[in-house]
Design a protein around this nucleic acid. Sequence first.
DNA 1: CCTTATCTTGACCCCGTGGTCAAGATGCCT
DNA 2: AGGCATCTTGACCACGGGGTCAAGATAAGG
Lengths: 209, 209
Amino acid sequence: MRADAQRNADKLRTAATALCRERGLQVSLKEIARHAGVSHGTLYNLFGTREALIDEVIGDIAAKRLGDAARRAQACDDAWEGFAGYVTEVCELQATDPALGDVLTRRCPQAVRLMAVCDNTAAAAASIIDRARSAGTLRPDFTTEDLIFFLASNAALARAAESTGAPGWRRSVAFLLDGLRTAAAHPLPTAPLKPAQLHHMLVGEPAAS
Amino acid sequence: MRADAQRNADKLRTAATALCRERGLQVSLKEIARHAGVSHGTLYNLFGTREALIDEVIGDIAAKRLGDAARRAQACDDAWEGFAGYVTEVCELQATDPALGDVLTRRCPQAVRLMAVCDNTAAAAASIIDRARSAGTLRPDFTTEDLIFFLASNAALARAAESTGAPGWRRSVAFLLDGLRTAAAHPLPTAPLKPAQLHHMLVGEPAAS
DNA sequence: CCTTATCTTGACCCCGTGGTCAAGATGCCT
DNA sequence: AGGCATCTTGACCACGGGGTCAAGATAAGG
């Protein structure tokens, strides 16, 4: 790879990172190129598809931040505290970094690394949930799919809320948590979602546009 | 108004109603015209702006359906049942009629009648919430803004969920309700949203595109 | 039936998106 | 320095959105 190509690739990566993290994963490629001070043709030359760029640029950040949150939760002595802290922390990530919200809602299904991050997050969430359920503090009928559903539904609003300086999502999370303690549980109206149903829901309809 | 103009207006209204209710309020005007078998120029002639069309077409439906739900809640003997039923019913409306979801999230701020429906709904919700709080079954720190925040966050997902035949939102609502009983309440992390903050949040960032 | 006011049409404008590619520029190696 | 391979550019394609308007169609009334 020639030096100038390398330089341009870096400029594009930088621009893409910044734009994705402040506006989400569906920023226009031409805008990224413009922002990087480079022709959009160059972007196509160097990365080919949006997925390749995004995947490269957001993959590590997403894996790190979501992984850290999961590890913190698992390291927590109290299972419930770990679970509650995890939910709060992930919501906070969504609120402050739109790109992460889009990762969790599978907005970019072609990006293999991001999808892997998504799967890992689901697995981590499952273990955090399991632990809290086993401890008897989290209601037993709460599933990983329920958590992801909640995260997905909060993604858009959390972002908007943060920009107004009014973190309404914090109250939302608190209400949810209060409803998730074993003591608060009442029978649920429907069966849990199957993973495939959740998946289809998220990739099928990319959250209103 | 000439007879053919009247006929075209009706065709456009019919098409607009159908498309809005199955795809939300931001359907393209050209698509509505196409669907009505009429030139898009005619649409502009007869209605001028998207807001005028939408307002006329969705206003009554929205007012009726949301009003009915509120009345049913208020007619309910038990305050908590009324409240819980109301939340469920509104979510169901959002899931089955994307247009209503968009109305409640103020996706079309120029449409005065729709905004009035929105305000009326908020007022009705406030009274339903008040009643349940006074009865002691709904936790006292839950506000109208919290409800609207929840409805907004569920809007996109409820729609997607319905189309997969997996009503995940029903479980979401159930978890929320379990967290809203007075007995389940734990202290909240932040102060309630002010109405203006909520408003700014909804109109400022139209939910992730 | 013929006139006229009303209405419809579709070509046209602007803007944006994703994507391609020949021509020209530039880095690099000899 | 020169020549080749690599890379960049920006014009171009097709598509879609919102919106406008002159010219032609048509309903309504005399």
